[in-house]
């Protein structure tokens, strides 16, 4: 769905932030991880067309970002900004969510329906007339997510969706990602919460200093403990627990580990 070819980018001449990245994205849900300043946000802004590559090309569907505007791309690709305050600019929750759908040409009834559904998914359906600036940070983030979901694009990128979320909030986001996956959408997420990565994403890409240094199924990626350590990424706690218990394999969920221990202890008995 997305082809990234030899893309480099710098904000100021001299310091390359993205260094010659080539990647293909299919429908697998994908996590992008890496330490602060690795270039993750910059990379997704390039995908969205908000920044233009210094060299190389990005093809979304069948159009090149070099030849289209972000506004045109908005029908295909939605981006939830890292900082909600950078994304929100309308005076009421409902207006904020309606902005995208109306702009990309959904008819008003459909737009309203999509907006209300999206707000229901994030649990803000009772606050339609509230000024977004009066929401808490976690609710602002959920509002941003709803604004993008309502656009019903085939590709959805979330820049640190779990920021400021408590357990319930994370659970909501998890459900949202699941339901988007069921609708055959490409969900790409930048995230620092490795437990969340292990539980929700099929593919993981590790960024370090502007390069994609690891790319594969989440299990393969978390098996590369040396490279991860070099990129200062800590594996999910369940994976670490597995190692400490002496297992060689990579566990991604508690269930997997428990099943294995149960089987092993049965054998031991």
């Amino acid at each position: 769905m997305i082809k990234v070819k030899d893309v480099s980018f710098s904000y100021q001449a001299g310091t390359e932030i993205i260094k010659d990245i080539t990647l293909h994205f299919d429908q697998r849900s994908t996590a992008i991880i890496g330490q602060n300043g690795a270039g993750k946000t910059t990379f997704v802004k390039l995908l969205k067309g908000l920044l233009k590559p210094s060299s190389g090309d990005i093809i979304i569907g069948d159009s090149s970002v070099n030849e289209t505007t972000p506004a045109t791309l908005a029908k295909q690709i939605g981006l939830v900004f890292q900082n909600p305050n950078d994304q929100i600019f309308k005076r009421s929750v409902l207006e904020e969510v309606l902005f995208g759908p109306l702009n990309i040409g959904q008819n008003p009834e459909l737009a309203k329906e999509n907006a209300l559904n999206a707000l229901k998914m994030v649990g803000l359906e009772n606050r339609l007339e509230v000024n977004p600036q009066d929401l808490s940070l976690s609710d602002k983030k959920l509002l941003c997510i709803a604004s993008i979901i309502a656009m019903d694009t085939n590709i959805i990128i979330l820049d640190e969706p779990t920021i400021a979320q408590d357990h319930l909030g994370k659970q909501k986001i998890k459900e949202i990602i699941q339901s988007l996956k069921e609708k055959q959408k490409l969900v790409m997420t930048i995230i620092h919460d490795m437990d969340f990565v292990a539980e929700n994403f099929e593919r993981t890409i590790v960024f370090q200093q502007g390069k994609a240094i690891l790319d594969g199924s989440t299990r393969e990626v978390f098996a590369e403990s040396d490279i991860l350590a070099a990129a200062r990424v800590e594996p999910p706690s369940i994976t670490q627990l597995g190692y400490w218990l002496g297992y060689k394999q990579v566990f991604l969920t508690e269930k997997e580990l428990i099943e294995t221990i149960k089987t092993d202890s049965k054998i031991a008995l």
Binding site: K48, P70, T72, A74, F81, F99, G100, M151
Partner: peptide
């Protein structure tokens, strides 16, 4: 804000 608007389909260019 212009980024927020064009990324949701408002033409600015």
């Amino acid at each position: 804000i212009s980024d927020a608007q064009r990324s949701r389909g408002m033409e600015t260019e």
